[in-house]
Each structure stands twice: as C-alpha cells, then as structure tokens.
C-alpha cells in the first residue's frame, strides 16, 4: 500500500482506539468498576487530569514543530524556544505582579509568545539567510535559551498567581469528560483549539496548501509563483510563537514559577510526538496525550505505593515509551520531502 493509504488506516484505528478509551474511562469512573484500585489507578479522573496537564506543553511543542517542518525547516530548537518563552513569561509576570491578575497573566502570555516568535525568526534567519545547517541552528537556539535564562534568572523573584480553571457551562457537567476537559484554565483550551485550527489551516486553506507544497517540493512551488523563503520565514516565526506559548503555559498555568531548565526535555518529546503523529496535528496530539499518559501513570503508580517494581523503573516509563514508539515508527512515517534543505532559485542572481 502507498504510505498515504497506510496513514489513513492508522488514523482511523487511532480515532477508534481513542473513543474506546474514553468510554472505558467513563465506565471506570461512574460505575462500580472503579472499586478495583488498579483500574482507578489506570483510568481515574486524577490520572486523566494529570495526563492532560502533562500533554499540553507537548501538544504545543508538536504544533510548533509541525508549523516549521511542514514548510521545510527542521526545528529541533523547540526546547530552547519553549524555555525562552517560559523565562520571558516569568520575567513579565514578576514585573507586573501589581497589575490586576488577569491583565498581568495575559500580558505575560503575550510576552512569552513574542519572545518565542523572535527565537523562531532567529532560527529562520540562520537557516535561510545564512544557510546554516538546521540541526546546528536549532542546537544554537537551545544553548542560547538555556544560557541566557540561567544567567538572568533572579532566584528571589516570585510570580504571584496563575491562570485559574474556567468551567464551561453545561459541558463541564458531563460526567468524567466534563471535569477533565471542560473545567480547565485558559491556555489548555487555547492549545486544544490550536490543534483543530492548525488541522483546518493546513489542509483546507490557501496558506496550508502553499505551506505543504513549500515543504514537499519547493521548486514546484516556485514554478507557480509562490515565494518559498517568505513562507518559510513566516511559518518558522509562527512555530516559535507557539513554542513560546508552551513555555508560557508551564509558568503561568501549570507551575506558577520558573526553574532553571524547567522544560526538562519536553521540547524533544514533542518532536517525537510530531514524528509519531506523522506531522499531522491530530496525530501529534494523540501522541502527546499518550506520552502525557505515561507520565501520569508514573505519577499514579508512585502515589499508589507500588513497591514490587523499583520506583526508578517506574520513573523511566515516559522515556521508555518515547524511545520504543519513535524507534518503531520512524521507518514508517514520512517527513516533508524537502525538510532541512536550503532552497535556492536556480537563476543564480
């Protein structure tokens, strides 16, 4: 079968599996089944909540990767862009502690997005203007973000307050799904909306069609008059902004504070999610949720006091799953064909 056929089949299987799991979760949490502790550990509301919380930064990171790579720029610098966003959010928040909370939070979010965008633009400039190897440019971004944020980090500063949950009327009343999905703080909603938006954008709009063409076959795009490099600049900057938002989420919604190196590899795991999801927004979201779930599981197993397996092994779970999944799928996914290659118009001028 042709790869695109295989992937259509995989997507259908994925959706069926996801629906089955939701049904199972509802059953476990609303019926007597929940009395079996292992089922509650595996599918309890607390596990589900944790899953989503761990998945959101991965989802945003993966969307950032998709934006860049669909247009042909490899972005392994997501980790750095995220960290820069997180640090920017923190600095903005600590400096606006005396503003009204919502205003201050929204302002800090914007700052995170803006700084992420600047990092994206930097990566695009390195890769396109200066023809730097994109892997190296991405690495530079990571080191830059880690270095600057550690150097400028004021350990005494405290950010006051974070985004509070907003319950959506009616929807939040649905058993299990309600509290897990519809009583969340702002950025979680934003991330989920972004996935749908990106999907529609990529496959149903002019921007998406051109972006994908530029990433697959830049010469073909050029021959129909599409400015290849302008699209690459634009998308890499947008990708940086989304990664910045992921950093903002960590500081302003999940944790409330900044710590050195707080992204802790999430940027890389989101790259894995992007690959596993075959550069499709919903696929990458599914992969992110899977990775988030393994983190939740690790948490729940430790909380439940599982002793039969040493806890170090349990802590390894998320990384193990990532490795297995990526090594198992890497041969089968299909990256955008022109990824990582500089495009030069052959005119020579």
């Amino acid at each position: 079968m042709r790869p695109h056929r295989v992937w259509k089949a995989t997507a259908i299987v994925g959706w069926v599996l996801a629906l089955a799991l939701v049904a199972l979760a509802i059953l476990v949490n609303t019926t007597a089944l929940g009395e079996r502790t292992w089922l509650r550990v595996l599918f309890g509301v607390s596990a589900l909540n944790f899953t989503l919380r761990a998945a959101i930064p991965l989802i945003l990171g993966a969307m950032s990767g998709i934006l860049c790579e669909r247009s042909g720029i490899i972005n392994i610098g997501i980790e750095g862009m995220m960290l820069a966003g997180a640090f920017a959010a923190f600095v903005a928040k600590t400096n606006t502690n005396d503003w009204p909370l919502t205003t201050s939070l929204l302002f800090s979010t914007l700052v995170a997005v803006g700084i992420g965008g600047i990092m994206g633009l930097l990566h695009a400039t390195f890769s396109i203007r200066f023809r730097m190897d994109q892997i190296i440019s991405g690495t530079v971004i990571i080191i830059l973000a880690a270095g600057i944020s550690a150097y400028l980090f004021d350990r005494d500063a405290v950010a006051e307050g974070k985004f509070a949950p907003i319950a959506i009327p009616l929807l939040s009343q649905i058993p299990v799904i309600g509290p897990v999905l519809f009583a969340k703080p702002l950025l979680t909603y934003l991330a989920l909306i972004l996935v749908a938006l990106l999907h529609v954008g990529l496959f149903y709009t002019r921007w998406g069609l051109r972006t994908r063409a530029v990433g697959e076959h830049p010469r073909a795009a050029d021959t129909v008059g599409i400015p290849v490099n302008r699209y690459r600049y634009m998308n890499t900057t947008l990708g940086g902004m989304v990664a910045g938002l992921a950093g903002g989420y960590l500081v302003l919604e999940a944790v409330g504070q900044f710590q050195e190196g707080m992204t802790a590899g999430r940027g890389f795991i989101s790259l894995a999610a992007m690959i596993f999801g075959n550069w499709n927004p919903f696929g990458a979201m599914g992969a992110s949720v899977l990775f988030g779930y393994t983190q939740a599981l690790q948490n729940e197993l430790l909380l439940a006091g599982v002793k039969t397996v040493p806890r170090h092994f349990i802590s390894m779970l998320p990384y193990l799953v990532t490795i297995v999944v990526v090594s198992g799928f890497v041969g089968r996914v299909r990256p955008p064909a022109a990824e990582g290659k500089v495009y030069e118009t052959e005119g020579g001028e």
Binding site: H4, L209, A213, E216, H217, A220, A221, T223, V224, R334
Partner: peptide, 9 residues
C-alpha cells in the same frame, strides 16, 4: 523537463 508536481498531493 522534470515534472513540477507535489507527489503526495
């Protein structure tokens, strides 16, 4: 001379 079509589209 060399086709300019995006194969996956």
């Amino acid at each position: 001379q060399h086709f300019q079509l995006v194969p996956v589209m």
